[in-house]
Design a protein around this nucleic acid. Sequence first.
DNA 1: ACCAAATATGAAAAATATTTCATAATTACA
DNA 2: TGTAATTATGAAATATTTTTCATATTTGGT
Lengths: 222, 222
Amino acid sequence: MNILIAEDEKAIANSLKKNFLAEGYTAKLVSDGAAVISSLENENFDIILLDWRMPKMTGLQVCKAIRESGNNTPIILLTALSDVSNKIDALKAGADDYITKPFNIEEVFARIEAVIRRTASAEPVLHCGSFSLNLFTHCVESGESSLKLTEKEFALLHFLVSNKGVVINRETLFEKVWGINYTPGTNFVDVTIKNLRKRLESITPGKCIKTVYGEGYVFLGD
Amino acid sequence: MNILIAEDEKAIANSLKKNFLAEGYTAKLVSDGAAVISSLENENFDIILLDWRMPKMTGLQVCKAIRESGNNTPIILLTALSDVSNKIDALKAGADDYITKPFNIEEVFARIEAVIRRTASAEPVLHCGSFSLNLFTHCVESGESSLKLTEKEFALLHFLVSNKGVVINRETLFEKVWGINYTPGTNFVDVTIKNLRKRLESITPGKCIKTVYGEGYVFLGD
DNA sequence: ACCAAATATGAAAAATATTTCATAATTACA
DNA sequence: TGTAATTATGAAATATTTTTCATATTTGGT
Protein backbone atom coordinates (compact mmCIF):
# COMPACT_ATOMS: atom_id res chain seq x y z
CA MET A 1 0.00 0.00 0.00
CA ASN A 2 1.48 3.32 -1.14
CA ILE A 3 0.02 6.51 0.29
CA LEU A 4 0.48 10.14 -0.71
CA ILE A 5 0.03 12.51 2.22
CA ALA A 6 -0.52 16.17 1.34
CA GLU A 7 -0.53 17.94 4.67
CA ASP A 8 0.92 21.29 5.62
CA GLU A 9 1.14 20.71 9.36
CA LYS A 10 4.35 18.79 9.92
CA ALA A 11 3.24 17.22 13.23
CA ILE A 12 0.15 15.63 11.74
CA ALA A 13 1.96 14.58 8.56
CA ASN A 14 4.80 12.91 10.44
CA SER A 15 2.46 11.15 12.84
CA LEU A 16 0.46 9.74 9.91
CA LYS A 17 3.58 8.61 8.12
CA LYS A 18 4.95 6.88 11.22
CA ASN A 19 1.72 4.96 11.69
CA PHE A 20 1.62 3.91 8.04
CA LEU A 21 5.22 2.71 8.07
CA ALA A 22 4.48 0.70 11.23
CA GLU A 23 1.73 -1.03 9.28
CA GLY A 24 4.15 -1.85 6.46
CA TYR A 25 2.73 0.78 4.12
CA THR A 26 4.86 3.24 2.20
CA ALA A 27 4.02 6.94 2.43
CA LYS A 28 5.24 10.05 0.69
CA LEU A 29 4.86 13.48 2.28
CA VAL A 30 4.24 16.66 0.31
CA SER A 31 3.09 20.04 1.53
CA ASP A 32 1.54 21.88 -1.39
CA GLY A 33 -0.76 21.36 -4.35
CA ALA A 34 1.88 21.58 -7.05
CA ALA A 35 3.88 18.83 -5.34
CA VAL A 36 0.79 16.61 -5.30
CA ILE A 37 0.26 17.02 -9.02
CA SER A 38 3.89 16.36 -9.90
CA SER A 39 4.07 13.34 -7.57
CA LEU A 40 1.08 11.82 -9.31
CA GLU A 41 2.77 12.21 -12.66
CA ASN A 42 5.75 10.16 -11.52
CA GLU A 43 4.30 7.53 -9.23
CA ASN A 44 1.24 5.40 -8.57
CA PHE A 45 -0.45 5.69 -5.20
CA ASP A 46 -3.20 3.58 -3.72
CA ILE A 47 -4.72 6.55 -1.94
CA ILE A 48 -4.23 10.27 -1.41
CA LEU A 49 -4.81 12.00 1.94
CA LEU A 50 -5.36 15.66 1.17
CA ASP A 51 -5.53 18.49 3.67
CA TRP A 52 -8.41 20.91 3.22
CA ARG A 53 -6.24 23.98 3.77
CA MET A 54 -2.97 24.13 1.93
CA PRO A 55 -0.69 26.98 0.89
CA LYS A 56 -1.74 28.65 -2.39
CA MET A 57 -4.39 26.13 -3.49
CA THR A 58 -7.12 24.74 -1.22
CA GLY A 59 -7.47 20.99 -0.91
CA LEU A 60 -10.65 21.33 -2.91
CA GLN A 61 -8.84 22.98 -5.80
CA VAL A 62 -6.10 20.36 -5.72
CA CYS A 63 -8.77 17.68 -5.70
CA LYS A 64 -10.44 19.15 -8.76
CA ALA A 65 -7.09 19.52 -10.52
CA ILE A 66 -6.27 15.86 -9.86
CA ARG A 67 -9.55 14.69 -11.34
CA GLU A 68 -9.26 17.03 -14.29
CA SER A 69 -5.88 15.54 -15.10
CA GLY A 70 -7.72 12.23 -15.49
CA ASN A 71 -6.28 10.66 -12.35
CA ASN A 72 -8.81 8.56 -10.41
CA THR A 73 -6.71 7.60 -7.39
CA PRO A 74 -9.02 7.59 -4.34
CA ILE A 75 -8.83 10.83 -2.35
CA ILE A 76 -9.69 11.36 1.31
CA LEU A 77 -9.90 15.00 2.38
CA LEU A 78 -8.74 15.98 5.87
CA THR A 79 -10.40 19.00 7.40
CA ALA A 80 -10.66 20.94 10.59
CA LEU A 81 -14.22 21.97 9.82
CA SER A 82 -17.18 19.80 10.61
CA ASP A 83 -19.46 21.72 8.28
CA VAL A 84 -21.65 19.39 6.26
CA SER A 85 -21.69 21.60 3.16
CA ASN A 86 -17.95 21.13 2.86
CA LYS A 87 -18.49 17.44 2.62
CA ILE A 88 -20.82 17.94 -0.29
CA ASP A 89 -18.32 20.26 -1.98
CA ALA A 90 -15.59 17.71 -1.40
CA LEU A 91 -17.50 14.87 -2.99
CA LYS A 92 -18.53 17.12 -5.88
CA ALA A 93 -14.90 18.00 -6.49
CA GLY A 94 -14.12 14.32 -6.86
CA ALA A 95 -13.05 13.29 -3.36
CA ASP A 96 -14.09 9.86 -2.16
CA ASP A 97 -14.33 10.49 1.57
CA TYR A 98 -13.76 13.06 4.26
CA ILE A 99 -12.21 12.87 7.74
CA THR A 100 -12.72 15.59 10.34
CA LYS A 101 -9.80 16.67 12.53
CA PRO A 102 -8.93 15.76 15.17
CA PHE A 103 -9.04 12.11 14.10
CA ASN A 104 -7.53 8.99 15.57
CA ILE A 105 -5.39 6.70 13.47
CA GLU A 106 -7.86 3.79 13.65
CA GLU A 107 -10.45 5.92 11.94
CA VAL A 108 -7.97 6.79 9.20
CA PHE A 109 -7.15 3.13 8.60
CA ALA A 110 -10.79 2.16 8.58
CA ARG A 111 -11.72 4.87 6.08
CA ILE A 112 -8.80 4.05 3.82
CA GLU A 113 -9.86 0.44 3.70
CA ALA A 114 -13.47 1.33 3.08
CA VAL A 115 -12.63 3.76 0.27
CA ILE A 116 -10.26 1.32 -1.41
CA ARG A 117 -12.80 -1.49 -1.24
CA ARG A 118 -15.44 0.79 -2.66
CA THR A 119 -13.39 2.31 -5.48
CA ALA A 120 -11.60 -0.90 -6.46
CA SER A 121 -14.84 -2.26 -7.88
CA ALA A 122 -15.99 1.06 -9.32
CA GLU A 123 -16.01 1.78 -13.01
CA PRO A 124 -13.89 4.58 -14.48
CA VAL A 125 -15.73 7.87 -14.60
CA LEU A 126 -14.93 11.36 -15.77
CA HIS A 127 -16.10 13.96 -13.28
CA CYS A 128 -17.82 16.82 -15.07
CA GLY A 129 -18.98 19.13 -12.29
CA SER A 130 -22.51 18.29 -11.30
CA PHE A 131 -22.62 15.04 -13.24
CA SER A 132 -20.20 12.35 -14.33
CA LEU A 133 -19.61 10.34 -17.44
CA ASN A 134 -19.18 6.61 -17.05
CA LEU A 135 -16.63 5.56 -19.64
CA PHE A 136 -17.63 1.91 -19.53
CA THR A 137 -21.39 2.07 -19.62
CA HIS A 138 -21.52 5.30 -21.67
CA CYS A 139 -23.98 6.73 -19.19
CA VAL A 140 -24.17 10.23 -17.75
CA GLU A 141 -24.90 9.99 -14.07
CA SER A 142 -26.04 12.51 -11.52
CA GLY A 143 -27.07 11.36 -8.08
CA GLU A 144 -29.82 8.83 -8.65
CA SER A 145 -30.49 9.43 -12.32
CA SER A 146 -28.55 7.78 -15.09
CA LEU A 147 -28.97 8.06 -18.81
CA LYS A 148 -27.43 6.02 -21.57
CA LEU A 149 -26.04 8.02 -24.48
CA THR A 150 -25.83 6.82 -28.07
CA GLU A 151 -22.36 6.19 -29.38
CA LYS A 152 -21.90 9.46 -31.23
CA GLU A 153 -23.36 11.41 -28.34
CA PHE A 154 -21.02 9.69 -25.91
CA ALA A 155 -17.93 10.17 -28.06
CA LEU A 156 -18.73 13.83 -28.61
CA LEU A 157 -19.38 14.57 -24.94
CA HIS A 158 -16.33 12.55 -23.92
CA PHE A 159 -14.11 14.60 -26.19
CA LEU A 160 -15.59 17.91 -25.11
CA VAL A 161 -15.39 17.03 -21.41
CA SER A 162 -11.78 15.92 -21.67
CA ASN A 163 -11.03 19.30 -23.23
CA LYS A 164 -13.08 21.18 -20.68
CA GLY A 165 -12.91 24.95 -21.10
CA VAL A 166 -11.29 24.91 -24.52
CA VAL A 167 -13.27 25.78 -27.62
CA ILE A 168 -13.17 23.03 -30.25
CA ASN A 169 -14.12 23.74 -33.83
CA ARG A 170 -16.51 21.58 -35.84
CA GLU A 171 -13.81 20.12 -38.09
CA THR A 172 -11.87 18.78 -35.11
CA LEU A 173 -14.97 17.45 -33.40
CA PHE A 174 -16.05 15.74 -36.58
CA GLU A 175 -12.70 14.10 -37.12
CA LYS A 176 -12.35 12.97 -33.51
CA VAL A 177 -15.85 11.58 -33.17
CA TRP A 178 -16.56 10.25 -36.65
CA GLY A 179 -12.97 9.27 -37.27
CA ILE A 180 -12.99 10.42 -40.88
CA ASN A 181 -11.84 13.57 -42.63
CA TYR A 182 -14.25 16.43 -42.47
CA THR A 183 -16.24 17.01 -45.61
CA PRO A 184 -18.03 20.36 -45.75
CA GLY A 185 -21.78 20.25 -46.04
CA THR A 186 -22.49 17.86 -43.20
CA ASN A 187 -23.94 19.15 -39.95
CA PHE A 188 -23.51 15.94 -37.95
CA VAL A 189 -21.82 17.84 -35.15
CA ASP A 190 -24.60 20.44 -34.86
CA VAL A 191 -27.31 17.80 -34.84
CA THR A 192 -25.55 15.64 -32.27
CA ILE A 193 -24.86 18.67 -30.06
CA LYS A 194 -28.55 19.48 -30.18
CA ASN A 195 -29.53 15.93 -29.17
CA LEU A 196 -26.88 15.88 -26.46
CA ARG A 197 -28.15 19.13 -24.98
CA LYS A 198 -31.70 17.85 -24.93
CA ARG A 199 -30.60 14.68 -23.13
CA LEU A 200 -28.46 16.54 -20.60
CA GLU A 201 -31.44 18.73 -19.68
CA SER A 202 -32.82 15.98 -17.47
CA ILE A 203 -29.44 15.40 -15.80
CA THR A 204 -28.09 18.86 -15.16
CA PRO A 205 -30.00 22.16 -15.12
CA GLY A 206 -27.34 24.54 -16.49
CA LYS A 207 -26.27 24.76 -20.13
CA CYS A 208 -22.92 23.06 -19.98
CA ILE A 209 -22.16 22.95 -23.70
CA LYS A 210 -21.79 26.48 -24.97
CA THR A 211 -21.66 27.63 -28.59
CA VAL A 212 -18.92 30.08 -29.50
CA TYR A 213 -20.17 31.87 -32.58
CA GLY A 214 -17.87 31.31 -35.52
CA GLU A 215 -15.51 29.08 -33.53
CA GLY A 216 -17.10 25.92 -32.24
CA TYR A 217 -18.29 24.41 -28.96
CA VAL A 218 -16.93 24.35 -25.39
CA PHE A 219 -17.75 22.22 -22.42
CA LEU A 220 -17.98 24.34 -19.29
CA GLY A 221 -17.83 22.82 -15.84
CA ASP A 222 -20.03 24.17 -13.08
CA MET B 1 8.28 4.93 -9.61
CA ASN B 2 7.54 1.66 -7.81
CA ILE B 3 8.90 -1.56 -9.29
CA LEU B 4 8.16 -5.19 -8.49
CA ILE B 5 11.09 -7.47 -9.25
CA ALA B 6 10.31 -11.17 -9.48
CA GLU B 7 13.68 -12.82 -9.90
CA ASP B 8 14.98 -16.04 -8.42
CA GLU B 9 18.69 -15.32 -8.79
CA LYS B 10 19.63 -13.19 -5.81
CA ALA B 11 22.65 -11.57 -7.47
CA ILE B 12 20.65 -10.22 -10.40
CA ALA B 13 17.74 -9.18 -8.20
CA ASN B 14 19.92 -7.26 -5.76
CA SER B 15 21.88 -5.57 -8.52
CA LEU B 16 18.62 -4.39 -10.13
CA LYS B 17 17.25 -3.15 -6.85
CA LYS B 18 20.44 -1.25 -6.03
CA ASN B 19 20.35 0.50 -9.39
CA PHE B 20 16.68 1.42 -9.01
CA LEU B 21 17.20 2.82 -5.52
CA ALA B 22 20.11 4.91 -6.82
CA GLU B 23 17.70 6.40 -9.35
CA GLY B 24 15.22 7.26 -6.58
CA TYR B 25 12.82 4.47 -7.48
CA THR B 26 11.35 2.06 -4.95
CA ALA B 27 11.63 -1.66 -5.64
CA LYS B 28 10.23 -4.78 -4.01
CA LEU B 29 11.90 -8.15 -4.44
CA VAL B 30 10.01 -11.44 -4.59
CA SER B 31 11.19 -14.83 -5.74
CA ASP B 32 8.15 -16.87 -6.73
CA GLY B 33 4.87 -16.59 -8.60
CA ALA B 34 2.62 -16.75 -5.58
CA ALA B 35 4.46 -13.81 -4.01
CA VAL B 36 3.95 -11.79 -7.19
CA ILE B 37 0.21 -12.38 -7.13
CA SER B 38 -0.16 -11.54 -3.45
CA SER B 39 2.03 -8.43 -3.77
CA LEU B 40 -0.18 -7.15 -6.55
CA GLU B 41 -3.24 -7.58 -4.37
CA ASN B 42 -1.77 -5.31 -1.71
CA GLU B 43 0.17 -2.70 -3.60
CA ASN B 44 0.26 -0.74 -6.85
CA PHE B 45 3.37 -0.98 -9.00
CA ASP B 46 4.34 1.03 -12.03
CA ILE B 47 6.01 -1.94 -13.64
CA ILE B 48 6.79 -5.62 -13.04
CA LEU B 49 10.09 -7.25 -14.03
CA LEU B 50 9.42 -10.96 -14.26
CA ASP B 51 11.99 -13.70 -14.65
CA TRP B 52 11.23 -16.31 -17.30
CA ARG B 53 12.24 -19.23 -15.09
CA MET B 54 10.89 -19.23 -11.57
CA PRO B 55 10.34 -22.01 -9.00
CA LYS B 56 7.03 -23.86 -9.48
CA MET B 57 5.44 -21.52 -12.05
CA THR B 58 7.20 -20.20 -15.16
CA GLY B 59 7.29 -16.48 -15.76
CA LEU B 60 4.85 -17.08 -18.58
CA GLN B 61 2.33 -18.72 -16.27
CA VAL B 62 2.71 -15.94 -13.73
CA CYS B 63 2.21 -13.43 -16.50
CA LYS B 64 -1.00 -15.11 -17.63
CA ALA B 65 -2.22 -15.34 -14.04
CA ILE B 66 -1.63 -11.61 -13.52
CA ARG B 67 -3.61 -10.69 -16.62
CA GLU B 68 -6.37 -13.12 -15.77
CA SER B 69 -6.76 -11.47 -12.39
CA GLY B 70 -7.57 -8.30 -14.34
CA ASN B 71 -4.31 -6.52 -13.45
CA ASN B 72 -2.87 -4.50 -16.32
CA THR B 73 0.39 -3.31 -14.76
CA PRO B 74 3.07 -3.33 -17.48
CA ILE B 75 5.23 -6.47 -17.42
CA ILE B 76 8.75 -6.92 -18.79
CA LEU B 77 9.93 -10.53 -18.98
CA LEU B 78 13.59 -11.31 -18.27
CA THR B 79 15.00 -14.38 -19.97
CA ALA B 80 18.24 -16.20 -20.59
CA LEU B 81 17.01 -17.48 -23.93
CA SER B 82 17.24 -15.46 -27.10
CA ASP B 83 14.70 -17.61 -28.89
CA VAL B 84 12.28 -15.51 -30.86
CA SER B 85 9.30 -17.81 -30.36
CA ASN B 86 9.52 -17.13 -26.63
CA LYS B 87 9.04 -13.48 -27.33
CA ILE B 88 5.85 -14.21 -29.18
CA ASP B 89 4.64 -16.44 -26.34
CA ALA B 90 5.48 -13.69 -23.87
CA LEU B 91 3.52 -11.04 -25.68
CA LYS B 92 0.62 -13.45 -26.16
CA ALA B 93 0.56 -14.12 -22.43
CA GLY B 94 0.14 -10.41 -21.80
CA ALA B 95 3.72 -9.20 -21.31
CA ASP B 96 4.60 -5.79 -22.69
CA ASP B 97 8.27 -6.33 -23.45
CA TYR B 98 11.12 -8.75 -23.15
CA ILE B 99 14.79 -8.35 -22.15
CA THR B 100 17.40 -11.01 -22.88
CA LYS B 101 20.06 -11.83 -20.28
CA PRO B 102 22.73 -10.77 -19.85
CA PHE B 103 21.49 -7.17 -19.99
CA ASN B 104 23.04 -3.92 -18.90
CA ILE B 105 21.18 -1.58 -16.60
CA GLU B 106 20.87 1.18 -19.22
CA GLU B 107 18.88 -1.17 -21.41
CA VAL B 108 16.58 -1.98 -18.50
CA PHE B 109 15.94 1.70 -17.78
CA ALA B 110 15.35 2.44 -21.44
CA ARG B 111 12.87 -0.40 -21.83
CA ILE B 112 11.03 0.51 -18.65
CA GLU B 113 10.59 4.06 -19.89
CA ALA B 114 9.48 2.93 -23.31
CA VAL B 115 6.94 0.46 -21.92
CA ILE B 116 5.52 2.98 -19.47
CA ARG B 117 5.20 5.62 -22.14
CA ARG B 118 3.50 3.13 -24.42
CA THR B 119 1.09 1.66 -21.88
CA ALA B 120 0.25 4.95 -20.15
CA SER B 121 -1.63 6.11 -23.20
CA ALA B 122 -3.07 2.69 -23.98
CA GLU B 123 -6.70 1.85 -23.46
CA PRO B 124 -7.76 -0.88 -21.03
CA VAL B 125 -7.94 -4.26 -22.67
CA LEU B 126 -8.86 -7.74 -21.57
CA HIS B 127 -6.40 -10.29 -22.89
CA CYS B 128 -8.24 -13.32 -24.26
CA GLY B 129 -5.49 -15.59 -25.59
CA SER B 130 -4.91 -14.89 -29.24
CA PHE B 131 -6.97 -11.73 -29.29
CA SER B 132 -7.93 -8.98 -26.90
CA LEU B 133 -11.05 -7.05 -26.07
CA ASN B 134 -10.78 -3.29 -25.88
CA LEU B 135 -13.13 -2.22 -23.11
CA PHE B 136 -13.29 1.39 -24.31
CA THR B 137 -13.78 1.02 -28.01
CA HIS B 138 -15.69 -2.30 -27.78
CA CYS B 139 -13.41 -3.76 -30.40
CA VAL B 140 -11.84 -7.20 -30.59
CA GLU B 141 -8.26 -6.84 -31.72
CA SER B 142 -5.72 -9.30 -32.99
CA GLY B 143 -2.48 -8.06 -34.46
CA GLU B 144 -3.45 -5.70 -37.23
CA SER B 145 -7.14 -6.51 -37.47
CA SER B 146 -9.76 -4.88 -35.36
CA LEU B 147 -13.48 -5.34 -35.33
CA LYS B 148 -16.16 -3.33 -33.62
CA LEU B 149 -18.81 -5.36 -31.83
CA THR B 150 -22.41 -4.32 -31.31
CA GLU B 151 -23.38 -3.56 -27.77
CA LYS B 152 -25.01 -6.86 -26.96
CA GLU B 153 -22.19 -8.77 -28.60
CA PHE B 154 -19.63 -6.82 -26.61
CA ALA B 155 -21.43 -7.22 -23.30
CA LEU B 156 -21.90 -10.94 -23.86
CA LEU B 157 -18.29 -11.55 -24.85
CA HIS B 158 -17.04 -9.33 -22.02
CA PHE B 159 -18.98 -11.34 -19.48
CA LEU B 160 -17.90 -14.69 -20.89
CA VAL B 161 -14.25 -13.64 -21.12
CA SER B 162 -14.18 -12.35 -17.58
CA ASN B 163 -15.52 -15.75 -16.50
CA LYS B 164 -13.10 -17.63 -18.72
CA GLY B 165 -13.33 -21.41 -18.29
CA VAL B 166 -16.56 -21.41 -16.32
CA VAL B 167 -19.81 -22.50 -17.92
CA ILE B 168 -22.53 -19.84 -17.69
CA ASN B 169 -26.15 -20.75 -18.21
CA ARG B 170 -28.50 -18.81 -20.48
CA GLU B 171 -30.50 -17.31 -17.64
CA THR B 172 -27.41 -15.74 -16.10
CA LEU B 173 -26.09 -14.51 -19.44
CA PHE B 174 -29.44 -13.00 -20.25
CA GLU B 175 -29.71 -11.20 -16.95
CA LYS B 176 -26.14 -9.90 -17.04
CA VAL B 177 -26.22 -8.71 -20.63
CA TRP B 178 -29.80 -7.56 -21.05
CA GLY B 179 -30.10 -6.38 -17.45
CA ILE B 180 -33.61 -7.67 -17.04
CA ASN B 181 -35.10 -10.81 -15.53
CA TYR B 182 -35.06 -13.83 -17.77
CA THR B 183 -38.36 -14.64 -19.41
CA PRO B 184 -38.52 -18.09 -21.00
CA GLY B 185 -39.23 -18.21 -24.70
CA THR B 186 -36.60 -15.74 -25.82
CA ASN B 187 -33.45 -16.98 -27.54
CA PHE B 188 -31.57 -13.68 -27.50
CA VAL B 189 -28.53 -15.36 -26.03
CA ASP B 190 -28.42 -18.09 -28.68
CA VAL B 191 -28.79 -15.61 -31.52
CA THR B 192 -26.15 -13.26 -30.15
CA ILE B 193 -23.74 -16.14 -29.56
CA LYS B 194 -24.21 -17.16 -33.17
CA ASN B 195 -23.46 -13.65 -34.42
CA LEU B 196 -20.51 -13.33 -32.07
CA ARG B 197 -19.02 -16.58 -33.33
CA LYS B 198 -19.38 -15.49 -36.91
CA ARG B 199 -17.63 -12.21 -36.17
CA LEU B 200 -14.81 -13.84 -34.23
CA GLU B 201 -14.11 -16.16 -37.19
CA SER B 202 -12.20 -13.40 -38.92
CA ILE B 203 -10.21 -12.57 -35.78
CA THR B 204 -9.27 -15.93 -34.30
CA PRO B 205 -9.27 -19.30 -36.06
CA GLY B 206 -10.26 -21.61 -33.15
CA LYS B 207 -13.74 -21.90 -31.70
CA CYS B 208 -13.32 -20.02 -28.46
CA ILE B 209 -16.95 -20.01 -27.31
CA LYS B 210 -18.02 -23.57 -26.63
CA THR B 211 -21.54 -24.84 -26.07
CA VAL B 212 -22.05 -27.17 -23.12
CA TYR B 213 -25.18 -29.15 -23.94
CA GLY B 214 -27.89 -28.60 -21.39
CA GLU B 215 -25.78 -26.14 -19.37
CA GLY B 216 -24.79 -23.03 -21.25
CA TYR B 217 -21.71 -21.47 -22.84
CA VAL B 218 -18.03 -21.19 -21.86
CA PHE B 219 -15.26 -18.99 -23.11
CA LEU B 220 -12.07 -21.00 -23.55
CA GLY B 221 -8.70 -19.34 -23.88
CA ASP B 222 -6.17 -20.68 -26.31
C1' DA C 1 -33.10 47.86 -37.15
C1' DC C 2 -31.30 45.21 -41.03
C1' DC C 3 -28.55 41.85 -43.33
C1' DA C 4 -25.71 37.95 -44.17
C1' DA C 5 -23.53 34.30 -42.00
C1' DA C 6 -23.84 30.94 -38.52
C1' DT C 7 -26.38 27.93 -35.69
C1' DA C 8 -30.61 25.28 -34.19
C1' DT C 9 -34.27 22.29 -35.04
C1' DG C 10 -37.89 19.06 -36.74
C1' DA C 11 -38.66 15.47 -39.38
C1' DA C 12 -37.96 12.24 -43.28
C1' DA C 13 -34.77 8.77 -45.18
C1' DA C 14 -31.25 5.43 -44.71
C1' DA C 15 -28.51 2.44 -42.15
C1' DT C 16 -27.86 -0.61 -38.03
C1' DA C 17 -29.10 -3.26 -34.32
C1' DT C 18 -32.37 -5.96 -31.80
C1' DT C 19 -36.05 -9.10 -31.37
C1' DT C 20 -39.06 -12.65 -32.99
C1' DC C 21 -40.00 -16.83 -34.97
C1' DA C 22 -40.08 -20.83 -37.88
C1' DT C 23 -37.23 -24.47 -39.24
C1' DA C 24 -32.84 -27.12 -39.49
C1' DA C 25 -29.14 -29.45 -37.23
C1' DT C 26 -27.14 -31.56 -33.29
C1' DT C 27 -26.97 -33.91 -28.90
C1' DA C 28 -27.65 -37.28 -25.12
C1' DC C 29 -29.63 -41.18 -23.96
C1' DA C 30 -32.60 -45.28 -24.09
C1' DT D 1 -30.72 -46.22 -34.35
C1' DG D 2 -34.64 -43.55 -32.96
C1' DT D 3 -36.46 -39.92 -30.31
C1' DA D 4 -37.12 -35.89 -27.66
C1' DA D 5 -34.77 -32.12 -26.05
C1' DT D 6 -31.51 -28.74 -27.07
C1' DT D 7 -29.04 -25.69 -29.93
C1' DA D 8 -28.13 -23.27 -34.49
C1' DT D 9 -29.50 -20.49 -38.13
C1' DG D 10 -31.79 -17.62 -41.73
C1' DA D 11 -34.69 -14.20 -42.33
C1' DA D 12 -38.60 -11.14 -41.36
C1' DA D 13 -40.37 -7.64 -38.22
C1' DT D 14 -39.28 -3.85 -34.90
C1' DA D 15 -36.77 -0.55 -32.88
C1' DT D 16 -33.03 2.52 -32.64
C1' DT D 17 -29.44 5.35 -34.42
C1' DT D 18 -27.39 7.96 -37.92
C1' DT D 19 -27.63 10.87 -41.79
C1' DT D 20 -29.78 14.19 -44.75
C1' DC D 21 -32.07 18.24 -45.65
C1' DA D 22 -35.23 22.03 -45.61
C1' DT D 23 -36.53 25.67 -42.73
C1' DA D 24 -36.37 28.58 -38.51
C1' DT D 25 -33.76 31.15 -35.28
C1' DT D 26 -29.86 33.57 -33.55
C1' DT D 27 -25.66 36.24 -33.91
C1' DG D 28 -22.32 39.96 -34.91
C1' DG D 29 -21.46 43.74 -37.57
C1' DT D 30 -23.18 47.77 -40.04
